[in-house]
Design a protein around this nucleic acid. Structure first.
Lengths: 212, 212
DNA sequence: ATACAATTGTGAAAATAATCACGACTTATT
DNA sequence: AATAAGTCGTGATTATTTTCACAATTGTAT
């Protein structure tokens, strides 16, 4: 389960590579070079070759990479044969956007259930995902390892604690709150206001002609 | 407009610091140490001190940082006295989430207008933001520097080209498409499926007890 | 067969970022 | 005053990530 020593920066790019390889495969493309892939995903070609090299020699010199082979390899590496079950907490607009997003298309990842505090929403479903009341979190979540947190900031800490207690492994946190969890739980923060503000800062302070 | 040499990693954290300083200020806190701030924003305290040090000596040894002073300093540094106007393209669930988000609360950033292809939405407004037809993009967008792109992937390239032609400076891209722009335009990609997939990968392949 | 063009995989170098660790200074306490 | 406790700012170090650049290999064309 661990082919160790893959740099984090590389690991973060793997799902991106995987999706584009899927696209290429659907387009019927048989081979691809790091240069082509580079133009598609906007990552330097040397970086792509380096990333791939952590998994061994996946390509052929003078030829490039066989799309089908590479795709198969990444499917295994990204555990795409095993379904990952996800719960979504908070069915506001952002949460609803996730419920309509078909993660199964490219990734073997499925939102199994959603929770909300609003009784009008409970019992219905969105995008085929049933909505339960947040009070029933402990009763229903049984075994789900990953949670997407799209609740109001004020509710973030309370729900986080309940998720931790119920044994969640990972949380994708879209609230502005920087939640506190034990070391055994992994949290990725995506802070929409920070992202916007950060883009603005770069625009104003960095030359309009270079890097990233 | 450029106090150069701020590392990108630091620049990305500035909006986060700014928001938490705002919180502290609202709570009536007068001083704060890098250690306290560290616990709140989940960034190592040495990193925080280093980040601040790029702007000079903002704190006092043995004391910490004066919240009000630091807040004022960051307000200037982040150009919070100048309004940043934003346009949002695509008022699906994700776009609507942004329209309800009050960026003005902490940041002097405002979504001035939204665009959509659906005639049923055109002419209405969401969260006080008027919705125009996407065909009127060139007519209406006049002068706006930043766009948030929350359209279906298939529409991303076409709209990007139109935004570039109309002289946009920055795009916050939420579509899975890796859009192509000239060097004079800055794009930040936030790819929801990749974020989710990447979290799952880390869970399965990295020891449940260490870093980040 | 041979030559040419394309493209990988990777050692080495460079760039970027995080962390350690401590001297210097500030405030609080006795 | 003197001492103790707290905290910054930063030189130095370490870690991580990106990029360069090229020998080795492959496929294609003649």
């Amino acid at each position: 389960m661990e082919q160790n020593k893959i740099p984090q920066a590389t690991a973060k790019r793997l799902p991106l590579y995987y999706r584009f390889l899927n696209n290429l495969h659907h387009q019927g493309k048989l081979r691809v070079s790091s240069k082509e892939l580079s133009e598609a995903v906007k990552v330097d070609s040397a970086t792509i070759r380096r990333d791939f090299s952590y998994f061994g020699a996946l390509g052929k010199k003078g030829y490039g990479y066989n799309v089908e082979y590479l795709l198969g390899f990444f499917r295994k590496t990204l555990d795409q044969d095993e379904l990952t079950e996800v719960a979504l907490i908070g069915t506001g607009n952002l949460g609803t956007a996730f419920l309509h997003y078909n993660f199964m298309k490219n990734n073997n990842t499925k939102i199994m259930m959603a929770f909300d505090a609003n009784p009008d929403k409970v019992g219905k479903d969105i995008g085929g995902v049933p909505i339960y009341h947040i009070d029933d979190l402990e009763k229903k979540i049984n075994g789900v390892q990953v949670a997407i947190l799209t609740v109001p900031a004020a509710a973030a800490d309370g729900i986080t604690n309940r998720l931790v207690d119920v044994g969640i492994s990972g949380i994708l946190n879209f609230t502005p709150a920087r939640i506190t969890v034990p070391d055994s739980v992994r949290v990725h923060h995506i802070d929409l206001a920070v992202e916007l503000q950060s883009l603005v800062y770069f625009l104003k302070h960095y030359p309009l002609d270079t890097e990233e």
